[in-house]
Design a protein around this nucleic acid. Sequence first.
DNA 1: CTTGCGCTTGACGCTACGTCAACTTCTACG
DNA 2: CGTAGAAGTTGACGTAGCGTCAAGCGCAAG
Lengths: 253, 253
Amino acid sequence: MTTTDETWDIAQVARMSGITSRTLRHYDERGLLTPSHTGHDGRRHYSRDELLRLQHILVLRELGTGLDRIAQIVDADDPATVTALLRDHLSGLTAERDRYARLAATVASTIDSLEKGQPMTTDEIFYGFDHKRHEPEARERWGDDAVDRSNAKWESLGKDGQQRHLDTHREVVEALGAAIRVGFTADSPEVQEIVAQHYAWVSLFWTPNQETYTGLTQMYVDDERFRRNYDEVAPGAAALLRDGAAIWAEANL
Amino acid sequence: MTTTDETWDIAQVARMSGITSRTLRHYDERGLLTPSHTGHDGRRHYSRDELLRLQHILVLRELGTGLDRIAQIVDADDPATVTALLRDHLSGLTAERDRYARLAATVASTIDSLEKGQPMTTDEIFYGFDHKRHEPEARERWGDDAVDRSNAKWESLGKDGQQRHLDTHREVVEALGAAIRVGFTADSPEVQEIVAQHYAWVSLFWTPNQETYTGLTQMYVDDERFRRNYDEVAPGAAALLRDGAAIWAEANL
DNA sequence: CTTGCGCTTGACGCTACGTCAACTTCTACG
DNA sequence: CGTAGAAGTTGACGTAGCGTCAAGCGCAAG
């Protein structure tokens, strides 16, 4: 019983997370992270939920997302939005990694030209330097559009609709399990129908095209966390969805 | 002749580099990047030198260095400082890459906990999240201390001392070449003496310890750009310096 | 002659905190 | 029990790196 009632004061949270207490106070001020309760003397106390939310916030902050948008994202607690956002997250992380790889190449080039004293062409000078294209893209990806629309959609569903939406995903996963047990193949009309349902489910918040949809389902297979979610109903469910999605997407997207 | 007299106006530079004209004006204002000349109407014109300087600036900016410090760095045009700084550059870039790898792991962990609804321990929540340690370190590494001392040292040398310093490195490289041709081994007193000279040369601006010094000389071998600089005098010069440094550092650092 | 484009110089705005300052509260110690 | 010191609190102002007007000028085209 005592383990679930743990709370931490501002200094402990600061040490654990590696940010300053000032930042925590700032987040409280902005309404981004409110302490679970405040002592009679005004001291802030945080519980496990706040720690998770904070970690969520910090990951997004690392990616350069503004606090306003972070608030929108972490407040969107429906699974479809979270799934879509995390997918972008992961691709954002790998994109960053690639960006630094290109930067390293540019630095090496610069070293070369500095050491040799040889001039580079103007094209070479800024090669691999997508700087302009990178920033706006990052901001667009997390733009008001996508997130706002997503949140608005979710809100507009009402309590009932939200519950139905959650149920829909359950149904998709279980239909996949049933299809596997019966032995349907990815190109069967039955599985294609399930894929269509899944696409409709995802599309409620985010509209993938052929490429991104096959990429999404591929990730369900590649990423252990997602795969487990599907395969716990029936082994191979994630793979079946991916294979079915590849066929379906080519025909319908 | 016409090729070396090229100039570009602010809009062209902005397009090439991917930054805004406002930023270029800001850099002019700060004295960070002054146009090669200004038209009678006040219009800014940039030549090749400014483009190179700008690229230098932008690379540093990507790494999160402040404009003040960027100015110090790009104004330090001596090879020892540049060598040390670029070494840190490259390690900084790979560190960033690693950081994003760890972030990806954290994101995956978060996905897991969100999907499963299972609580993570407080340690797990912030695992791989060196956030606090990362930022200050980056700022420290480029801190006033190192760069200021380096610049001050360089200035204090005077024109003569600066030239002597440049010559010293030439001497070290050529001594290595001679040692190779004569067949001296890394543990020979002659090579050890050369290493001592090289260490003294580096130490004028930056004082490596055993680990960082062996790391530095290892990089001379690993990085093609640096290696070429040594090996063009005699093949194997970089490797000989590294091997000698390993022995020398263990004995003297 | 004027319209419009692209530049110019101020000047103020903004984000995400850092950094005092002045004050309260809890804990430790004599 | 009194008090010092550590650690929290709330304002409030400062900072970096530009974005974003506003107002004006020079030049080429119509």
